[in-house]
């Protein structure tokens, strides 16, 4: 229980250095279980997938599977659909989420915390529960269609699910909280004096919003958009249920290749393409940020 330093030794720097190194080693040991688990469950399978996608039965390497995928309409269409769904989801999230986040940041404390709860509750509600409820609301004789026909807005019930529209509604519902939270955080960080300054210099509300608040919130809007886009790329559950088989995503094709066709090379190649898309979005984001900084733009974009 006694400390070596208390024994009256004059020079314990070697001891301290050894202690520091041991501690560092200990930290690695502490992080090891997590790293090991991720390696077994994710890194190794992904490496295996990459190998399966390029290996021929005789052990040589080729890009045949990729060429096959790129010349098969079923697959190219799913790639296109995936990007359309993801882009559209980002757009609707931005249109609904940005004003919502602005309101959240500008109302009083009490109302703001209620709105925050409104965002958090669906965020943690099970994905399947929400998808299920949306399918009930949007079905042919569902609440939305009944409202529309009863009020005479439409004469026939609209097809709101089992199509692209239903998928976007579902995806937006899932992704909206993920978009609102970073945008809200970014707006909250804006220095109020800048807004006051704009007002005192005679800027109209619209000009202040456009020239001051939105550029300063761009950081969060950008982060939210990238997050939503990347997560949408790999989404499976919502398009499968609300798309009713008419919105084939890359993830849908991967699932079918594994569980129906047992075509592992095709599933693996699609998986690698999906992963590359995700990586590319991150990479482009990184480049954009850097070049904007290099051009002397706002450093927080």
């Amino acid at each position: 229980m006694t400390l070596p330093a208390a024994a009256g030794a004059t020079d314990n720097s070697a001891l301290l250095r050894r202690d520091g190194m041991l501690a560092q080693l200990g930290f690695f040991g502490l992080a090891l279980p997590a790293v090991l688990l991720v390696t077994i469950a994710i890194v190794v399978p992904l490496a295996a997938m990459l190998w399966i996608s390029i290996a021929r039965p005789d052990g040589t390497v080729s890009l045949d599977t990729y060429l096959k995928i790129m010349s098969t309409p079923v697959y190219t269409r799913s790639v296109l659909t995936t990007f359309q769904v993801s882009g559209m989801t980002v757009l609707t999230c931005a249109l609904l989420g940005t004003p919502f986040a602005l309101v959240m940041a500008s109302v009083g404390r009490r109302l703001a915390s209620i709105l925050l709860l409104v965002v958090m509750l669906p965020f943690w509600t099970a994905l399947l529960v929400r998808t299920y409820a949306l399918s009930v609301l949007l079905q042919r004789n569902g609440l939305v269609n009944r409202f529309l026909t009863d009020t005479g807005l439409v004469s026939e019930p609209l097809p709101l699910i089992n199509n692209f529209f239903g998928t976007i509604v579902g995806m937006t519902h899932v992704m909206l909280p993920l978009f609102i939270l970073p945008v809200y955080a970014a707006i909250k960080q804006i220095d109020q004096n800048i807004i006051r300054a704009a007002a005192s210099l005679g800027a109209s509300k619209l000009l202040t919003l456009r020239a001051v608040i939105l550029p300063l919130a761009a950081n969060g809007i950008f982060a939210g958009a990238v997050l939503v886009f990347v997560l949408s790329l790999g989404f499976y559950v919502t398009p499968a249920i609300l798309g009713g088989g008419r919105v084939p995503m890359i993830s849908t094709r991967i699932e079918q290749n594994v569980s129906v066709l047992s075509d592992w090379p095709a599933a693996s190649a699609l998986g690698v393409l999906l992963l590359l898309s995700v990586g590319m979005v991150f990479f482009v984001t990184f480049l954009l940020r850097r070049s904007i900084k290099a051009l002397g733009g706002s450093p927080n974009v």
Binding site: A34, V35, V38, T39, A41, I42, V43, V44, P45, L46, A48, M49, V230, L233, G234, F235, Y236, S251, I254, E255, V258, W264, A267, G271, L274, L275, V278
Partner: peptide, 19 residues
């Protein structure tokens, strides 16, 4: 590495684990 399970699309985690 620690955030990888959240960035890799879940469908890939699933089929990788299955494999």
């Amino acid at each position: 590495v620690l955030l990888m399970p959240a960035t890799v699309p879940p469908i890939l985690v699933a089929i990788g684990l299955f494999f």
